[in-house]
Design a binder for these strands. Structure first.
Lengths: 344, 344
DNA sequence: ATTAGCACTCATTCGAGTTGAGTGCTAATA
DNA sequence: TATTAGCACTCAACTCGAATGAGTGCTAAT
């Protein structure tokens, strides 16, 4: 069967209506739409077709129809393609620049949630191109050295390195010089085994410290593990009856709280984003691959702070969420974050 | 009216029973307890008294009785005073030492929640006595210095300080020496205005950098703002029907997610803890002063990592939670955390 | 002081009946 | 041939009353 103009309009009417009410919508309701002058019976025939094609479904006989995931997908794709939505009529959201990045992110999450009435999550930015910029070992007390590592983008990492033997200041100075001259400006790929062994040789009896320091550097540059995720507005899901029953709510809440699963979808979405600019992604139901999210939709967008520091923010709501508003809100904050750091 | 031995036993029986079942308990149920050989009628008379005294209440006529907050308080106080509970028969919980403190805390929160089936929260440790241990300025690039500050307990803070004029290495070295010799080993109180002006004088044209550095130190030592809270097992509250209805659940979830209110109770509890060793605190219903927690109880305990680093962990469950288990679980983890850092 | 007995209360459960929104099919219509 | 009116049918949701049973308070007997 083919999708024609009229079917499209009917499907869109069904979805629109369902987005508003959350109730299955019947043929009579649609026939009342002024612009398509059709009797309920005709609508019913079309609906029957649409159901067969998989765009809508009936919760049970003698109920109206609700959109299927495929139906939502159709709707969202059309809406997104429609035009580059202008983000003018939005309520003003002001992001204050905070001195702690984590504070800024928490603030953004809160704004997202408060403006949409859905749940929101935001990830800390991931560094993209990262080279070691600066390294410093300092003696903190008798048994330990402090390694401070600065990578491109002024990301700072600290690591305490225990020392077996007592060290004098001069040795520390020498090690600093050795490490800095050999490693500064290099990326992870460029610090290879040959280079490491060379440095260790030169360090003599202190090769173990060099090893620890290099470990710390590797950790700082990859920075895999410190993908932090901040959430807000989890309680908003209770506003949508179709998500508010205990089992579903429990699943969603725990997904938001134990962030591991979120990390996956975020990593994936970040990767995807490389291809197509800063587009907004929509995951409907099962598309997010997270079991507990099968009744939710997730709208995601990347943001970019300074060059190469890219993170993800997302809005999590029921499938019948206002996709347009979600997308607009994300875009708005994307712009704000952009402006915040680019201007300086 | 007076509380006598028999009333006490009946009250305890009522509460015990209610803790198990979550259902109002009637006179017949209690009369079946072997150890107090009384007919339902007698029990009823006593219950009537207990109700008048405010220890129990009836959800409605012709229902059994449930404990009031006062009743719970009575029970908890007796239980706590009973004896120093041994923590032997607990399931083993192993806390791995993690190199990131935040990882450790998340782990502990998870353990608390998983072992009790309640929600759990843990705060990052607050530094108690804190002196500056070590300070280091380093040139990161042309326009900025990196200040690394280590305070007692090896807490490390970083701060980028922008410099107006270009600086050579020697000046940085001098400033380092100046700051370290004058400030190391001092606490917040000891760094007074006199000292600061003295240092600024000696720094000459670089007094602005000294000012920034001292600001950073103050921030690091007080460290008020970075009281982080990690939660786990929020979804557990859905296991208790009396908390699982939308409104209540929503309130609790949002309290756990937006951590502000938790911070208050934690600060308070930390302060209280100064007086009476490492006792376990119980807040029943309204006692926690948090509106959304009025149907919950919160059991809290402090933990101590290294000297002076004290934080709070708490278990949040329904009023009819297994207080004994909660207390034991907290104690167990208290010991584990102790052992983890004291031993080294 | 305790208990047995009894009348009373009231939330909960169950099933039957009703309602109403919605469907699919068929035959009439444009 | 596409659309529509008409009609029988389905089924979730609601209402209502009866039955159930756990629990109470009171009174009189032990």
């Amino acid at each position: 069967m083919e999708m024609d103009e009229r079917k499209t309009r009917i499907l869109e009417a069904i979805i629109r209506n369902y987005l508003e009410t959350g109730e299955p919508v019947g043929s009579r309701t649609i026939s009342r739409y002024e612009d398509l002058k059709l009797s309920p019976a005709t609508i019913r025939n079309e609906m029957s077709d649409l159901e067969e094609m998989g765009y809508i479904l009936q919760p049970h006989t003698s109920a109206g129809r609700i959109p299927s995931d495929k139906g939502y997908r159709f709707y969202v794709d059309r809406m997104m393609a429609d035009r580059e939505k202008e983000v003018s009529d939005m309520q003003e959201m002001v992001v204050r620049k905070a001195d702690q990045l984590s504070e800024l992110l928490k603030q953004v999450a809160k704004l997202l949630a408060a403006n949409t009435n859905y749940a929101a999550a935001i990830s800390s930015p991931q560094i993209h191109r990262n080279k070691l910029k600066f390294l410093q070992l300092s003696k903190v007390d008798e048994g330990s050295l402090l390694a401070v590592i600065v990578v491109e983008g002024n990301i700072i990492k600290n690591k305490i390195i225990p020392t077996s033997s007592e060290m004098d200041n001069e040795t520390v100075l020498k090690l600093n010089l050795l490490l800095n001259t050999n490693l500064c400006g290099l990326s992870l790929e460029e610090i290879n085994l040959g280079l490491i062994t060379l440095i260790k040789e030169r360090a003599g009896i202190h090769s173990d410290i060099v090893a620890s320091a290099i470990d710390a550097i590797a950790e700082a540059i990859t920075a895999e593990e410190d993908l932090e995720i901040y959430t807000s507005g989890a309680n908003n899901i209770f506003k949508y009856p179709e998500l508010a029953d205990n089992e579903k709510a429990s699943g969603i809440i725990s997904t938001l709280e134990e962030k591991n699963q979120l990390k996956e979808i975020i990593s994936e979405s970040l990767a995807l984003d490389n291809d197509n600019g800063h587009a907004i992604q929509v995951y409907i139901g099962h598309e997010s691959q997270i079991e507990s999210m099968k009744d939710c939709s997730v709208v995601t967008a990347t943001y970019e702070l300074e060059d190469g520091m890219r993170g993800m923010m997302s809005i999590i709501g029921p499938k019948r969420m206002d996709y347009e508003k979600a997308a607009k809100t994300l875009k708005k904050l994307q712009e704000q974050l952009d402006a915040l750091y680019k201007k300086t």
